[in-house]
Nucleic acid binder design. Sequence first.
DNA 1: TCGATAGTTCGATATTTTTCGAACTTTGGC
DNA 2: GCCAAAGTTCGAAAAATATCGAACTATCGA
Lengths: 101, 101
Amino acid sequence: MRHARLPAPEEIALEDVFHALSDPFRLDVVRRLAAEGEASCQALEGDRPKSSVSHHFRVLREAGLIRTRNEGVTRMNALRRDDIERRFPGLLACILTAKED
Amino acid sequence: MRHARLPAPEEIALEDVFHALSDPFRLDVVRRLAAEGEASCQALEGDRPKSSVSHHFRVLREAGLIRTRNEGVTRMNALRRDDIERRFPGLLACILTAKED
DNA sequence: TCGATAGTTCGATATTTTTCGAACTTTGGC
DNA sequence: GCCAAAGTTCGAAAAATATCGAACTATCGA
């Protein structure tokens, strides 16, 4: 399985991060990963077909927000907390503490 | 001139803010407004036709990031710093301090 | 009242994203 | 080796955005 490229910490671009987070599903995934640590794609899919879920995880991965590792037959996704924090201090906190209503 | 609706502070949605900021031109406008205080659309346009510039300002306005007031024949745009800060603490700081290489 | 200036709105086209099924890949278990 | 599970990739179609010219609007000044 060819590994999806994930940007080096210093390559993470704010525009890409913002674009990735501008989708409600993806924003939710980020929040749940922050809360739950790691999760398989399946655990976070919300009724969508696999190909859609896969697409959204790819956007998050290419934006530099998550990292994916193989664990047996599943792929575990985790937030790149430290990398994000180092590149854009405060961003994550801001996303996670934002009270939506 | 019908006034563009701008969302009340508590209506500002993180998704919309992120979408607005995912465009390089708009992100730049926000940064420059933060640095310069207020500016006319013209002052910030980068060679684009007026209709494009106007479109981007509208996206920023509707996302709740800027406020526009008439000053004579021009329209002055300003960041809604306090509203943004109150709704999403730290977001603005995070955008402005992000060192893009 | 006429111009000029600064934007806005409209409409059409182009570009980008999203969505989803089908086929494919990888890994683990039997 | 074969099968199932979990994703990925591909391709096509739908939806959302962006771009830009042209026409329109509002305000100021002469």
